[in-house]
Design a protein around this nucleic acid. Structure first.
Lengths: 222, 222
DNA sequence: TGAAATAGTGTACGTTCGACACTATCCTTC
DNA sequence: GAAGGATAGTGTCGAACGTACACTATTTCA
């Protein structure tokens, strides 16, 4: 492992697949590219890793720059490094994914005169670079984690109903779940607490509000 | 995502945590460093990513250079990029892990005059760089995958006994398993076939030999 | 006050998981 | 050639868990 003159010095970037649940759909954050390559196309937020910056910090910075939110769940996903993934030259991207509660959403749109927005996962157009693949891998990982962790709770605001939580599962897994079984299961996790409040939301019975017992923590279960 | 002058151009390397089962222990492959930094210490095999080389190919090359084996299971693990992880300067390492059947073991020792060897996972000394951490993460990932995939079969030679397979699980999970329940479970996977042969191996009843139905494939189960 | 809409609740069955002990076969030794 | 030592191989039962399934409760609005 000596310095090899034939080895390249690739550009190293991070990209973040930012998920949220909005308008009853699983959506992700995209920014429009203002310069070539792929000028005008939508892409995942991201950027170059600074000289003295940890990879996690770089991803977090990309996330905060585009969403304005901090302290959300962020996890390294996979590293993409096909030699031709960037037409400008060799580039490695360490991909992350993040889960943002729908309440925290305050896009820093136009502040840096960049077009930015939320897009439904199931209506995605072709993205810049290999970003479609990143999105695909992130979605797979997220769906898998639902089965053996409490990661879905990272989507929830401080107070939420069980129906809302069920919708999170259904939108990620892309299938309907049984209401009674679902409630049994999530309550058995022992990670959400009933509050004394209810939410009145339309001409029907109000729903009890719950809160996450350990916000910020994701537990591995079973 | 324009080229940022303040961004660094880190060296990009791959490292591979090569697992095998040998002498009844879970072991991994280490090479002794011949130059600074960490000269004389043991480290994971690895090397710089070549200018036109895919990350997977780079890891595979590091693996083949050190073990001489090809066509083994190799999976990207995690990317390590702490700014100070290499005292020579900024460096990113994309870590992989590989599983090698004990039969294929033919170390290319001394051919490039490099010290190389197998070390028991539970008696590891401090390694160069952040390689202890890589080993730890790889072991965790491997243990987790036992529960929901057929990855353990990648350790097995063409013909093997169920007791040998059980030992693989026990050494990775670090716990004894019940023989009857284990056999029920792995046979229910429907991924290994009984052969007509037995292996005589000491002064006791010979063990039936089995073979992997789809070698090279790792199935996700349940 | 009735209709529409979502919230909330329990049971029964099938499957899976885990604990548990004895017989079979081969080799070695006396 | 009999006995002892060593590993291979085999089945049952109870508990826990997952899954299918339908009706009542509460609110708003017409």
């Amino acid at each position: 492992m000596t310095r090899n003159p034939r080895s390249s010095r690739p550009a190293v970037t991070t990209n973040v697949v930012v998920f949220t649940l909005r308008d009853d759909k699983l959506k992700l954050l995209l920014v429009r590219r203002r310069s070539d390559p792929y000028k005008g196309m939508w892409a995942l937020p991201g950027g170059y890793v600074e000289a003295d910056e940890d990879l996690d910090d770089s991803a977090m910075r990309a996330l905060e720059d585009s969403t304005g939110v901090a302290g959300v769940y962020l996890e390294q996903l996979y590293t993409f490094g096909a030699p031709d993934r960037d037409p400008r030259g060799r580039s490695i991207s360490v991909a992350y994914y993040a889960l943002v509660p729908s309440e925290k959403l305050q896009l820093r749109t136009a502040s840096d005169s960049e077009a930015i927005g939320w897009f439904a996962l199931d209506e995605l157009e072709p993205l810049a670079f290999d970003h479609n693949e990143m999105v695909h891998v992130a979605h797979q990982r997220l769906a898998a984690k639902l089965a053996y962790s409490t990661i879905a709770l990272q989507f929830m605001p401080q107070k939420f109903t069980l129906s809302e939580l069920q919708k999170v599962y259904e939108r990620i897994l892309n299938e309907k779940l049984d209401k009674r079984n679902f409630r049994k299961r999530v309550l058995a996790l022992d990670q959400i607490d009933q509050t004394q409040e209810v939410r009145r939301n339309g001409s029907h019975r109000p729903a009890r509000l719950y809160s996450v017992r350990n916000p910020g923590e994701v537990q591995i279960i079973r």
